[in-house]
Design a binder for these strands. Structure first.
Length: 167
DNA sequence: AAGGAGGACGCAC
DNA sequence: GTGCGTCCTCCTT
């Protein structure tokens, strides 16, 4: 029923297809362009590293209006990845206060404060009602080998760290 | 109990 | 093949 295709945000498309840093059309969603830094893809293409530079907190001038809209679905090619979703939440501390937050923003260290809620949000985004933290964390663990997210040195509970290229 | 590490299998791209 | 989602065993906090 819902005209999904006209409302969906395609962040992965933006970074996967060209890698150009065009502003996301903030029509139905409110993901800022900084929400999705291209991973290793930007290593090959020069010129679009302006905002994905290795520098920690360059600037954070994008406190865009909160969006609690939950895109209908997201599987397959056009699906947002878990690590992108987590960054999305982290970039909106007001909207997800008490849910997830940066512990050390410059090092990409964050803490999931309400595991159940984060899992529920992820489940909503992916249209997976049965999502829980047990399963979400399994996916995070898959990121270890891929070099996207890792556990911190002291391995604190519910604390993870984005690898530099994914910050 | 809740969280964490991985193996194994299945499924939609 | 990828990126999970699901289920499971065992271990740690």
């Amino acid at each position: 029923m819902a005209p999904r295709s006209s409302f969906i945000l395609e962040p992965t498309l933006l970074q996967a297809s060209q890698g150009h840093h065009s502003r996301l059309l903030s029509g139905g969603g409110c993901i800022s362009r900084a929400a999705l830094s291209s991973p290793a893809s930007s290593l090959g293409s020069a010129g679009d590293l302006s905002w994905a530079s290795p520098s920690p907190d360059q600037h954070e001038e994008m406190q865009e209006p909160l969006c609690h809209e939950i895109p209908p679905i997201g599987r397959g090619k056009h699906a947002i990845h878990l690590w992108q979703f987590l960054k999305e939440l982290l970039l909106q501390p007001h909207a997800y206060h008490g849910c997830i937050r940066w512990l050390d923003r410059s090092r990409g260290i964050f803490k999931i404060e309400d595991s159940a809620r984060v899992a529920k949000l992820w489940g909503q985004r992916k249209n997976r009602p049965a999502m829980n933290y047990d399963k979400l964390s399994r996916s995070i663990r898959q990121y270890y080998k891929k070099g996207i997210i890792k556990k911190t040195e002291n391995s604190k509970r519910l604390v993870y760290q984005f690898q530099p290229q994914y910050r």
